[in-house]
Measured scan of single mutants.
Amino acid sequence: SSGGSSILDRAVIEHNLLSASKLYNNITFEELGALLEIPAAKAEKIASQMITEGRMNGFIDQIDGIVHFETR
């Protein structure tokens, strides 16, 4: 797709992000992006959206560029 990722790509990214949230206590956007094979800024945006929508527990430290995952 030309304008970003398809629905399937997005679903795969979100699935992998949720998997990462179970493996890590926290991770930088750079590391997360590398893990998900997407730019760091996109990793931040998707993580932020999932947390806001209540689909993933955690919070974002924008100063240090880190996602902190919280286990249920």
Results as ranks from 00 to 15, higher is better:
L32T: 00
S48N: 09
T28Q: 02
G3V: 11
R55C: 05
G4R: 08
T28P: 04
L23Q: 11
E53D: 09
G65T: 03
Q62L: 14
Q62P: 14
L8R: 11
N57A: 13
L18S: 05
N25E: 14
K45S: 12
S19V: 15
P39V: 05
H15E: 14
T28A: 04
E70C: 13
E14L: 05
A34W: 08
S6G: 11
L36S: 02
T71C: 10
A34Q: 11
D61E: 05
G54W: 01
M56C: 03
Y24W: 07
N16R: 14
L36H: 01
I46M: 08
H15F: 12
L23R: 10
S5N: 12
R10F: 12
R55K: 10
A11V: 10
G4A: 12
Y24G: 05
E44A: 15
E44V: 15
Q49I: 08
A41G: 08
A43H: 00
I63F: 08
K22C: 11
D61G: 04
Q62F: 14
R55V: 06
F29D: 00
Q62R: 13
I13N: 04
D64Q: 15
V67D: 01
I7M: 13
A20D: 02
L32F: 03
L36P: 00
A34P: 02
N26K: 15
A41W: 15
V67P: 03
V12W: 14
Y24Q: 05
A20V: 15
E14I: 08
N16T: 08
F59D: 04
Y24R: 06
I27V: 07
E30L: 09
K22S: 06
V67Y: 03
N16K: 15
L35H: 04
N16V: 09
I63G: 08
Q49S: 08
P39W: 03
K42N: 10
N25R: 11
A20R: 03
S19D: 11
F69Q: 02
V12M: 11
I51N: 01
A11G: 08
T52P: 00
S5Q: 14
A47V: 14
A20K: 06
S21C: 07
I27N: 00
A41C: 08
A11Q: 12
I38N: 00
R10E: 12
A34R: 13
P39E: 08
L18F: 05
L36C: 05
A20M: 11
Y24D: 03
P39A: 06
I46C: 04
A40E: 04
K42M: 15
F29I: 08
A47H: 00
T28Y: 03
R10M: 15
E14K: 03
D9S: 04
N16A: 13
H68Q: 05
I51T: 01
N26M: 14
I46F: 07
G58S: 02
I27E: 00
S19G: 09
R10Y: 13
E30N: 07
L18E: 05
G3M: 10
A43L: 10
N25I: 12
D9F: 02
L36W: 04
N25Y: 12
G3D: 13
D64E: 15
M56N: 00
I63L: 11
S5K: 12
R72N: 14
L35D: 00
G33M: 03
L32M: 04
K22F: 08
L17K: 01
E70M: 07
R72K: 14
M50Q: 00
G3T: 13
I7T: 10
F69T: 03
I63M: 09
S2E: 14
H15P: 04
N25F: 09
A43R: 01
P39K: 05
L23K: 13
T28G: 06
G58I: 03
N16Y: 10
G33W: 03
Q49G: 05
I27R: 04
E30G: 07
R10G: 07
S2P: 12
S19L: 15
F29E: 00
I13H: 06
Y24S: 04
K45F: 13
I63R: 10
R55Q: 06
L8T: 11
M56S: 01
N57Q: 11
L17F: 05
S5L: 07
S19R: 15
R55Y: 05
S6R: 10
S5R: 08
Q62A: 10
R72V: 12
H15D: 12
H15A: 14
E37T: 07
G65E: 06
N25L: 11
K45I: 13
R55F: 06
N57H: 11
I51F: 08
S5G: 13
I66T: 11
A40K: 07
A41T: 09
A47E: 00
S48H: 13
S19K: 15
V12R: 11
G4Q: 12
L35V: 06
N16I: 14
A11P: 06
K22D: 07
A40W: 09
G58A: 11
I13V: 09
G54A: 05
L17Y: 02
A43Q: 00
G33L: 03
Y24F: 11
G4H: 12
L35R: 04
N57V: 12
N26C: 15
F69P: 01
Q62W: 15
I46E: 02
E37N: 15
M56R: 00
I38G: 01
H15S: 13
T28F: 03
I60K: 00
